[in-house]
Structure formats: structure tokens, C-alpha cells
């Protein structure tokens, strides 16, 4: 469901269920979610712990598959894709920003930004220039040779954002992207997301903090794996 029906759909969930086996019992982390995320929209996905936020993000990020239902990226169902095709889809059309940054410690800033490019079949000629440009953009142009342990948390998260943008993805998926940062640094990161949104990027931000959720254009609230409500945040 989208509040802007005229917008082109970036990602769509159709009656998605994700069931886990816990001992002998089945637990539905997602229980029949149907929703559309329009292109260029900025969504926050909110809910209490155990509401299914992370499971939903995993499915949106194609690192997990629904037990039932269908997930479509740019109108194409992902259930028909094999493991390699899913990997290609993740690398080319999705950008991840994790709570704990998840940079690769033995690579420097520039190499970390280039990781999604490394798994392309061919090295694109624009890759290096774009990586430098993105490093510059997130304010790390002077630190491209540094490795993650030499950077602050905020700087590492900026590298992660640059990495998410390197392939110019259709969807940017952020999982509690400011959860490990202090208020000031979190604000800086959120400003980067605001800028990306202003540029027309589609952003799905999972958070449990209301104040952060309200910065998004729309909020999808989950309770017990179901959609509780969809809110248009007028303040954004």
C-alpha cells in the first residue's frame, strides 16, 4: 500500500509471510504483509523489538526469502531468482547501511566503498572516480587510505553510506543506522539521508526511535509481524 499511488513502485511486498521453526512450533516473524514502496520515497519502518522489522529488512534486502507471498523489486519477482542472481541483484540494485557499519577491517576507505563493485563481472571504468567522489561527498575525501579501525563510528558509518551508494541502487536499506552513534553524529548521518532523499533516492530506514522515524516521509509501523499502520509524516 502506498499513499502516493501515482509514484512508480520501487519495491513491493504481496502477502509476505516469514515463518521460523522454533523447536516444534512455528513462529511467524512476518504474517501477511502487503505493501508498496514508491520510487524516491523515504520510509521509516518502526516497531517494538520482535515486531518483525529486521526480518522485513532482510527480505527487502534479498538476503532472506519469504516463506509465503511474493516480493518484487522494480516489478520483478525475486522468488524466481537463483542464489547467484539474488547476489547480483543485491550488489547492483540494493544498498545496505548496517547499525554496526560492517566495514571490512583489512580494506581501506576507498576499497570498502568499492566492495559492491568488486563482485561485478567486469570492473566499470567509472568505479574509482565515483568511489572518490562519494568519499568526498561523505566528508572523507582526505582519509581514503585509512582503514576502519582508524576511523570514528560516525566516519565508519559515512563510509558505509558511500559504499551503499557506489552502484547507484534502487533502494537504500538502513538498519538502525544511527543506533551506535552519539546524538550529534547520528544527526549528521540523518542529514546525509535527508540529502539523499532530496536527490530522489528511495530509502527504507528501520528504527525503533520515534524521533528518527518521524524524519522519514512515511512510516510503516509493525506489530507482531503485521502492518499496524502507515503514516505520512507531515513534518518531513
Amino acid at each position: 500500500m502506498t499513499l502516493q499511488a501515482q509514484t512508480e513502485v520501487a519495491a513491493e511486498l504481496v502477502n509476505v509471510r516469514r515463518v521460523y521453526q522454533m523447536g516444534g512450533t512455528e513462529v511467524a516473524a512476518l504474517d501477511g504483509i502487503t505493501h508498496q514502496f514508491g520510487r524516491g520515497e523515504y520510509w521509516s519502518i518502526m516497531g517494538s523489538s520482535g515486531s518483525g522489522k529486521s526480518t522485513l529488512l532482510n527480505i527487502l534486502g534479498c538476503i532472506d526469502r519469504p516463506t509465503e507471498g511474493e516480493y518484487l523489486v522494480g516489478g520483478s519477482p525475486v522468488s524466481t531468482l537463483n542464489d547467484d542472481q539474488l547476489s547480483e541483484l543485491r550488489g547492483a540494485r540494493l544498498g545496505f547501511v548496517f547499525q554496526s557499519y560492517n566495514l571490512i577491517p583489512q580494506l581501506d576507505v576507498l576499497e570498502n566503498i568499492l566492495v559492491p563493485v568488486m563482485y561485478r563481472d567486469e570492473w566499470p571504468p567509472w568505479a574509482l572516480d565515483r568511489a572518490k567522489e562519494l568519499a568526498e561527498r561523505v566528508g572523507l575525501g582526505g582519509r581514503t587510505g585509512h582503514r576502519p579501525p582508524e576511523l570514528s563510528g560516525g566516519q565508519q558509518q559515512r563510509v558505509a553510506i558511500a559504499r551503499a551508494l557506489i552502484n547507484d541502487p534502487d533502494l537504500i536499506l538502513a538498519d538502525e543506522a544511527t543506533g551506535n552513534l552519539d546524538t550529534k553524529t547520528a544527526e549528521e548521518i540523518l542529514e546525509v539521508f535527508d540529502e539523499l532523499h532530496a536527490e530522489g533516492k528511495t530509502i527504507l530506514l528501520v528504527t525503533h526511535e520515534r524521533s528518527i522515524g518521524l524524519r522519514a516521509e512515511f512510516t510503516l509501523k509493525l506489530v507482531d509481524g503485521r502492518t499496524e499502520e502507515v503514516v505520512e509524516n507531515r513534518s518531513s
Binding site: 547467484d84 547476489s87 547480483e88 543485491r90 545496505f96 548496517f98 560492517n102 571490512i104 566492495v115
Partner: peptide
Amino acid sequence: TREIGIRRALGAKRKD
């Protein structure tokens, strides 16, 4: 393990 997860999430195929 975590690095493997990151790489897979960022587009690495099993063969990579």
C-alpha cells in the same frame, strides 16, 4: 563469519 555475511549482502556470490 560476519565478514562473509557482509560480502554476501553486498553482492558476493557463493563462488566468490
